[in-house]
Amino acid sequence: MSGLLALLDDVAAIAKVAAASVDDVAAQALKAGSKAAGAVIDDAAVTPKYVQGFDASRELPIIWRIARGSVFNKLVILLPAGLLLSAFAPWLIAPLLMLGGAYLCFEGAEKIAHWLFHHEEALEDVQEISDPAHLEEANVKGAIKTDFILSAEIMTLALAAIPEGTIWMEAAVLAMVAVGITVAVYGSVALIVKADDLGLAMARRGRLGLTRSLGLGIVNAMPKVMKTLTIVGTAAMLWVGGSIIIHSLKDVGWKTPYTLIHDFAVAVAARTPENLHGFVEWSATAFADGIFGLALGLALIPVASKVIAPIWGAVFKR
């Protein structure tokens, strides 16, 4: 009997350790995932365009195919690559972070430049779908390629935020980040894409006037929601991209940009009531990071269009 009790005690102890490990993985995954906020919002803002023009019955299947490709990108390609990087070339993480941050800054600045200087141009040409199956295949492949770039940023940011530990802990955290972010992004995209259909159904078939009014309100609100999401995504890209660059420069020894922004944020916070100091300092830091990101992104636009794009085209479009 005493042996059985001892065994049960051991099992309970193991269960507690396992539960603590799960909690640690979940906490680290949440912290690591939050570092990738800009790329996540950008991913959610970009994806709906890939289902535009298709029959409503194909919207969710297309999103599901893209989501499966995203999981494959993260778990099968990027997770092992990230673990190998962490184990054998951790010095590469900071340069890769800066590269990803620069890409976010470039994407955000390019959108703002388009809004400012090409506002009257049509955002996209209306495309007649003569072969829906072929176009769907092309859109899914294009979306998965775009997702790969954003997923690489997300996984690199998550990897950099994970404290040193065993390779299995890092793998578990990265896997949780990969699955959690994919579900969050593509679940949100599915809700956004189908919200107008839901609103239209409520407006047409609702038995109560309140239901019909709510449905009509959803239909009318969705264009504004999409516009707001785009604006928030652009601001998040510039803020997160700028912050990544500034903190990475600090980590490699150039602390001047970080110090200037920190002193600016502290000075701004000092002019506000004491109970607001933390929020104001954070907001001022995010604002300054975003301005830095915008300036860097604008500087990168001619480099990307005049140098990188021709080289990329020559190498991959032959």
Rank of each mutant, 00 (worst) to 15 (best):
S2G: 06
L5K: 13
A6P: 01
K16W: 00
A32S: 04
S34C: 01
A37M: 04
V40P: 00
D43E: 06
A45V: 05
P48I: 09
K49I: 14
Y50V: 09
W64H: 09
F72V: 12
N73E: 12
L78D: 14
G82K: 12
P90V: 11
W91M: 15
L92C: 15
P95N: 14
M98G: 14
G101R: 09
A109D: 07
E110H: 10
K111C: 05
I112Q: 01
H118S: 14
Q127E: 14
I129F: 10
K141D: 11
M155S: 07
A158P: 04
A160D: 12
V183K: 06
A184C: 00
V185L: 01
A190W: 01
V193Y: 11
K194N: 11
D196Y: 10
D197H: 12
L200N: 10
R204G: 09
G209Y: 00
L214N: 04
G215P: 01
V219G: 08
M222V: 08
M226Y: 12
G233T: 03
A235N: 02
M237C: 03
A269W: 01
T272R: 15
E274H: 07
E274T: 11
L276A: 14
E281C: 09
F287Y: 03
V307R: 08
P310L: 05
F316H: 10
